[in-house]
Write a protein that binds this DNA or RNA. Structure first.
Lengths: 105, 105
DNA sequence: TTATTTTATCGTATATTTACGATAAACAAT
DNA sequence: ATTGTTTATCGTAAATATACGATAAAATAA
């Protein structure tokens, strides 16, 4: 893009759009569903459940971690990922507020 | 990107990630807030409230319309946009489901 | 008709995203 | 020490997103 103008908005608008960006790929939605449904937080099992290369999954995990939707914990040579309840709660309430009104057309 | 693999996911995952993509820019979050808070659906007033050129705002409106979050109605030479309640409700419940569990780390 | 207003679209430049193989880094096991 | 396992990072190619000026299109107003 030419010059980004994202910093001309409020920090709340920027934060929520950043959360949405983290959710804007089906692989990342699926990762959250996997972490939601099972305790299999280990990267290897996540990779096995996705039709993507290990390097690509690692990139997607990094993006989810960047906005605080998930957290990683080192366990020997393995890494265990899990949902971050605090961020999920905050995102949910921000989205609820955005989606609260009815249409007008 | 090399080759997109988005079609290897479920249609629900693809749909929700597409909604998230539409929300992944602060200008589009702000447009939804404007439509949520006022009846000023006319494009001109939306442009006036954003720090972006008219062509850019039109692109953002197109993206929101693409996923059905808003609808446009022609009113003479003007166009009136509004929220689409049906899509908002569906998106809200899908996100609620995704955000229902607590973390594990 | 001729202008004016309003919005969408085209063309374009630059930035970011997505994907993967290759490699590095960190630990475990032999 | 060497080997194997696991995950992150680097480098890179191609696609997509963002921004704007210029222009088209469509209705109103003069």
């Amino acid at each position: 893009m030419a010059i980004t103008k994202k910093d001309e908005f409020t920090s709340e608008e920027i934060w929520l759009s950043d959360i949405a960006k983290a959710l804007s790929h089906p692989a990342r939605i699926k990762i959250l569903k996997i972490l939601n449904e099972t305790d299999s937080c280990i990267v290897g099992t996540i990779v096995d459940k996705l039709p993507l290369a290990q390097a690509t999954v690692s990139q997607h995990l990094k993006e989810l971690k960047r906005v605080g939707l998930i957290e990683g914990e080192i366990d020997g040579p393995k890494v265990c990922y899990c949902l971050n309840n605090k961020t999920l709660t905050r995102a949910k309430s921000a989205l609820d507020k955005l989606f609260s009104k009815i249409g007008c057309c």
